[in-house]
Simulated assay, not measured.
Amino acid sequence: MSANATQLYAKRFGRVLLHIEQHLDEELTLDALSALAHYSPFHFHRAFSAYVGVSVGRYVQLMRLRRASIRLREEPQLPVLDIALHAGFDSGEAFARAFKRTFGQSPSAFRRTPLWQAWNAAFVFPSFIWSVIMQVDIMQFPATRIAALEHRGPIRELSHSWQTFTAWRQHSGVSSVEQYRTFGIPYSNPDTTPPADFQFDLCGELGAGEIVAANPEGVVEKFIPGGRCARVRHLGPRDRLGQTIYPLYRDWLPSSSETPRDFPLFFHFVTSKFGPEREHDITDIYLPLR
């Protein structure tokens, strides 16, 4: 990574980290934080996790817990419940659970005799343990009409939606699996999104003149916009896509000086059968660029 690219990346996320530190009493929305980093919300959470080592939600919670722990020591007369509520927790019990899970002791015990080694360890953010050499290509992706089944819910249920979508493609005769490409569009990161909020479109390319008629499965017509994309190939099970996605954001993106476009990354399932157990699957990952 060039020095200039490193400095630019650090400056972007430095603004975000400083803003979080200065506004812990306020609602810190994804839209506001991503704007500070000049990232689309689609990409910000992944880039932040890759840069810092934890999700933005976890980072904010850690900063609030850190401030609360300091208040426990410096304001011994202040009730623990008041500190908990000021830190954004709904109850003293929720605060105590999060505090003990993070620092290894209850708020009251920390107030009396803090375990500073555990406290310091909580703020050492992890780096990824794998190193990936990636061949990233910049290419022009053509605008593509697709049939899409919108999956909403836990990622573990995605295989059921896949079966529904595949069955629709077969019995409708539209977007034939044998003739046309199969795509996936994740609108959120399953590593950082509550299971009920996870969104993923299962998609099949539409042939010229093909129309998606109203259907009980809920398949609708959409399109993937055309434009510049970074493309990298992932080999192996799709439940390990993060092993390629995170280095793409962490290593390649800052060194490239590119900026993601306002559309989520998407997958082309080169081998179109779905299943995390398939060791020889091939998936092309596309990161839309400005």
Rank of each mutant, 00 (worst) to 15 (best):
F128C: 00
V132H: 04
P79A: 11
R97Q: 15
G92T: 08
A121F: 01
L81G: 04
D82Q: 14
T102F: 09
A94G: 14
S91Y: 04
L85F: 10
R112M: 01
Q140D: 11
K100V: 03
P142Y: 00
A121C: 02
P107H: 06
V132Q: 11
L85S: 03
V80D: 06
A121Y: 02
A94V: 01
M134P: 06
T102S: 15
V136P: 02
T113A: 12
Q135S: 07
N120I: 07
M139F: 03
Q135N: 08
G104H: 04
D90I: 03
M134D: 06
T113D: 10
D82Y: 01
D137C: 11
Q105M: 09
G88Y: 05
E93D: 13
W119K: 03
I129D: 15
T113Y: 01
F128D: 05
L78Y: 01
F95I: 00
F99R: 06
R97W: 09
F89E: 14
F99I: 10
D137Y: 10
A121D: 13
S91P: 14
P126L: 04
S131A: 06
L78H: 07
R97I: 15
P126H: 09
N120H: 04
P79T: 06
I133C: 08
Q135K: 02
A84K: 03
G92D: 09
E93F: 12
S131T: 11
A118N: 09
L85N: 00
F99D: 08
Q140N: 12
P126D: 09
A84S: 12
P107S: 08
D137F: 11
F110W: 13
Q135R: 08
D82H: 13
A143S: 15
F95H: 12
F141M: 13
R97K: 15
F125Q: 09
F103I: 10
A121G: 06
M134W: 01
R111A: 14
S106R: 02
P114F: 05
G88V: 08
L115H: 13
M139G: 04
P126I: 07
I129W: 10
E93H: 13
L78C: 11
A122I: 01
F125S: 05
S127P: 00
Q135V: 06
D82K: 14
I83V: 08
L78V: 14
R97D: 15
G92I: 00
S127Y: 07
P79W: 10
L85P: 10
V80I: 15
L78K: 13
E93M: 11
G104R: 10
F123M: 13
I133R: 10
A96W: 04
G104D: 07
A122T: 04
W130T: 14
G88M: 05
P79K: 10
G88L: 12
Q117H: 09
A109Q: 08
R111C: 02
A96K: 13
F141Q: 10
T113H: 10
V136A: 03
W119E: 06
Q135L: 02
F103P: 09
I138Q: 11
D82I: 03
P126Q: 04
G88R: 05
F110K: 02
L85W: 07
S106K: 00
F123Y: 15
S108H: 12
A118G: 02
P114Q: 12
D137L: 14
R112K: 12
T102H: 04
F123S: 14
I83R: 01
A96F: 06
Q140Y: 00
I83P: 06
F123H: 15
A96I: 02
L81W: 00
P114I: 02
S91A: 09
V136D: 01
